[in-house]
Nucleic acid binder design. Structure first.
Lengths: 203, 203
DNA sequence: TTGTTATGCAAATGTATGTTATTTTTAAGT
DNA sequence: ACTTAAAAATAACATACATTTGCATAACAA
């Protein structure tokens, strides 16, 4: 019987490599379907060696979901503090969101879709984080309404529409494509602000 | 050695029950994470009995993805045949889509997210179906542009934005909520056509 | 009644799962 | 060169997986 405490790796580099490879596999086949042996092979080691760096499979999920969640939330709170009018706030928030999400698509996929597989209490904690982010977006829309820039809308609905547009990116974005993340963000902002209809003022 | 041919059930009722329960479980925990034992328990039989009605687990995925895919495609093709101006086409297409998706949320979830787990050749076939649907939406946007109703946009991008809005519904829609599917469809259409910005013509 | 088919269950098959215990190799610090 | 700790490997564990086999029952047609 050994006095073996929890193993905590010193080199975080490897851990990040593992999580990054894991996210890629999860994006391809889902969290539940990703096997630790498969992951180990992708990293170039044997499955049990993973546990020199991780406590469990779920730690991967935890890491990715919360790291990305906090990153998004911080960026959003910064926007809500600094910028002045609502349109600029919204455009900046969207640009930040798009940049963060496109910067690591696999992680974004995990964050957006696979958080369901978190177990309590992480699950509740994560939902709270998400709600907070959603509330931040809603704040901007609300401000825009009060400023008279945005039309009166169902706040909840408008917020969800914005989130749908920015989160759906992971379903189609390819880094090799022609549009840069910033260009995508601009197009999405235009779309959300103006819609498809031709502006009749200039006709 | 038996001469046991493929088992094909006569009562399709039960099969539909199984698939419906399966979709609910898949929505909750994902296709890979749903176990046949768990499904059997939900149906009220033992796991091996499922195979009196199904050939395999994947048949569930197949059924749901293709049934819903065909349903959506047919509805869209009807719209593209009948209605005249592009705005009406788009509004109708969106309404159909929303109605179909909200009618069976679990199935919609499987259709939108879990098709990845299909294996060849079904996978390629399904992708083709999806592409066809996307092309149908793009046709409408293209027509709107030519009619001068819609502004000139990146066709691909506009199409994806529309699909993102209607597909994201499954992430938040609750049948107990206040909005009916038709109301949701209207709001989405308005949002896509007009955007958030207040119409300055009437100010 | 008899033959047939649909449906179910219990038992078992082979494989894959996440993970632990234990040992060996590698690398760094002295 | 010696020590120490980190990282990897081997072997194994318990459990869970989708599925098959073989057999029983119930419904129904002849």
């Amino acid at each position: 019987m050994h006095n073996k405490l929890t193993v905590v790796s010193m080199s975080q580099e490897k851990k990040e490599l593992i999580i990054s490879k894991a996210n890629a596999l999860i994006q391809k086949s889902g969290y539940a379907a990703m096997g630790m042996r498969e992951l180990a092979k992708a990293v170039g080691i044997e499955a049990p060696s993973l546990y020199n760096h991780l406590q469990s499979k779920e730690e991967i999920l935890n890491q990715t979901c919360f790291t990305l969640g906090r990153k998004l939330l911080i960026a959003l709170e910064e926007v809500n503090d600094i910028y002045f009018d609502a349109e600029q706030k919204l455009r900046t928030a969207i640009r930040n969101h798009v940049e963060i999400i496109t910067h690591d698509l696999s992680a974004a996929y995990v964050f957006i879709h696979e958080w369901k597989h978190l177990s309590e209490p992480s699950l509740s904690e994560f939902k709270q984080l998400r709600d907070k982010y959603e509330a931040g977006i809603r704040e901007i829309v609300e401000a825009g309404e009060k400023e008279g820039i945005f039309k009166e809308t169902d706040l909840k609905f408008a917020t969800l529409s914005i989130l749908s547009a920015v989160n759906w990116i992971i379903e189609w974005y390819k880094p090799e494509g022609t549009m840069t993340p910033i260009q995508i963000a601009e197009k999405i902002s235009d779309f959300i602000l103006q819609g498809l209809t031709r502006d009749k003022r200039f006709n």
